[in-house]
Design a protein around this nucleic acid. Sequence first.
DNA 1: ACCACATGCCAC
DNA 2: AAACGTGGCATGTGGT
Length: 637
Amino acid sequence: MKKEKIIGLDTETTGLDYDKDHIVGISMTLPKADYHCYIPVGHVTGEKQLSPEYVFSSLNKYLENEKLGKVLHNAKFDFHMFYKEGIYVKGLIMDTIIAMKILNENELTYALKNLATKYGKYFGFEDKSMTYEELFGKGGFERTPFDIATVYACKDTHLCYRFYKWIDTQFDRLPKIKKIYYEIENPLLIVSFDMEKNGFEMNLDFAQKYKRNLTVEIIQLEKKLYKIFGEINLNSPTQLGKVIYDQMKLPDISKTRSVDAETIKKLADHSSDIKALLDYRNKKKLLGTYIEPLPQKIWKRDNRLHGNFNQNGTKTGRYSSNDPNLQNIPPEARPMFVAPKGKVIIGKDLSQIEPRCLAYMSGDEHFQHPYLHGGDLYSSLASKTLKLDMKYCLDGAYDPTHTFKPRKRMKTGLLAVMYGTSIFTLSQQLGITLEEAKQFIEDFLNTYPTARDYIQSIKDFVDENEYVETYLGRKRRFIGHKKVAQQYKAVCKHIIDVLGYMPTNIWQEKKLSRHIKNTYWKYAKDYGRVTRQAVNAVIQGSSADYIKIVMLRVNNYLKILGEEYKLLGIIHDEILMEVPDIVAPEVIAELDRIMTSIEWFKFPIKTDTVIMYQWGNEINVSKWLEDRENYNKKRSA
DNA sequence: ACCACATGCCAC
DNA sequence: AAACGTGGCATGTGGT
Ligand SMILES: Nc1nc2c(ncn2[C@H]2C[C@H](O)[C@@H](COP(=O)(O)OP(=O)(O)OP(=O)(O)O)O2)c(=O)[nH]1
Ligand SMILES: [Mn+2]
């Protein structure tokens, strides 16, 4: 081991649960020695094995040695399993899953064996033998005899190492991708691991009481709804559809017998029956998806809730989160998440990040104007378009009738327009007429002509190249799009040849045959979708580039401050941290500096910073700093 | 027990 | 006729 620079590393475990399962064996590939070994520590085959204590304490100095490089396939998993044995693995050189996702985000599977079968011919891997899983199924590795276990475990690390070497050579043709991998994604894996291992403290008392209340309310609503809709399964759209469309004979405005909230709201506008059904759905969702299941996921080991943060969970470069998803907790469920005694949660959210990003990347001076002057485009557009006084359009404010939040509504509207929405969707979303929606889109494109041209240039690029790039060169590929674009443009040209112009509404043109209309729609559908995805990928992906750099720097900074400063989560453009409630104002200022000064983003960035004893209960950071003793005292009471 | 798919809905 | 984007989870339905 002392002679090796980089080793292949893998663990075999009793299962996939970080809390319940544990390591039963460790495999390593030592390339210089051409030595591949498997060290069983928890097999139950009766064969003689070293004690886990001995093995882990002996390996500790190698695994925690930054200088000894490690290559793994799905490193975060093994890091969790080692961590529960007291080992914090250092020296990650490559996670071959993450690297592959950067190289090609469109693989059907990222299982090592499958990738090796597909790309193995390029690096001399032609093993056609079955994997352990294929032969014996998932799990049960602890019951496998040493000789068989050794063969399969060692094959994996050896393959992973050779795959790493191949990927590294591929990187040399792709300098931007290489930089993204080694300067962002690879170090970021440690940040993801840190977040996952940190987890959240939960207020079980709150959860229990909330659960009791919701359960009672749901039972009462069920009783009421059974009288209205009959003794059907209220959760079944099919059964509900039969009642609404066949028995009650309400008009099928969706044309698909949809019973979703938006449709049935229109069906019976102020009907208390519909209100009761929606109320039921709301509470059922809240209870069934958040309040009830989340507390059950708390680890026995540390009494905290841990979810996965998947750093390449999306095709655009954003994170995703699962098991449980910590990126879609609704306001009502947030107070379950709390800061421990003596600590606070800091939330820092980037302001208007994607419009800002589009303004910057397009170079549109008019679009840039509000951001150069500290303005809020969502608020000002809300005020103008919805004809409301500014005080109703500030962040968090309600409209005069107290039924919606104008800024939030306009946020969705503006983003939808940026990403190519139709006047139909926009008028629905904003609650304005089709004419007003049409005007809004035209105003956007005419007020920001350089942004309009930039959006068009992204579409032209993807039509030609079948991929787009973020600011830092992260790619999203659209295989097969060039052909679709050509066919789409050919149909458009044909229509222009027939009519002499391109109609805004194809379907109303009497001169066009049914066949042409259908052909048009076949290609227009794909073409429109891909070009919208392409524009979105550039902006959403560049925002992801930005926040990922922020995360690297914030996590480094928090580590310097000490164990009590933890990164808890990333919600796309918002970072959640847990820090002592005596945190220095200078630290808060430094966090802001880090988050707003990424060198390549040569444009103003603004953040919204809040202090919380329970998530969702937000205290303005300046107010908190002025009066923190009182806040802290009140909290502990 | 599991799977695949559709529907609906939560977040950014 | 119907075209903002990126995700994950619960539930029903039909199937093994
Ligand atoms: N295409 C699209 N993107 C969305 C939508 N909602 C959120 N996003 C993306 C774009 C946002 O800039 C980004 C961050 O979400 P936020 O809720 O933090 O909004 P934003 O930062 O724009 O405004 P803010 O000043 O934080 O209120 O996520 C949406 O409905 N459609
Ligand atoms: Mn934001």
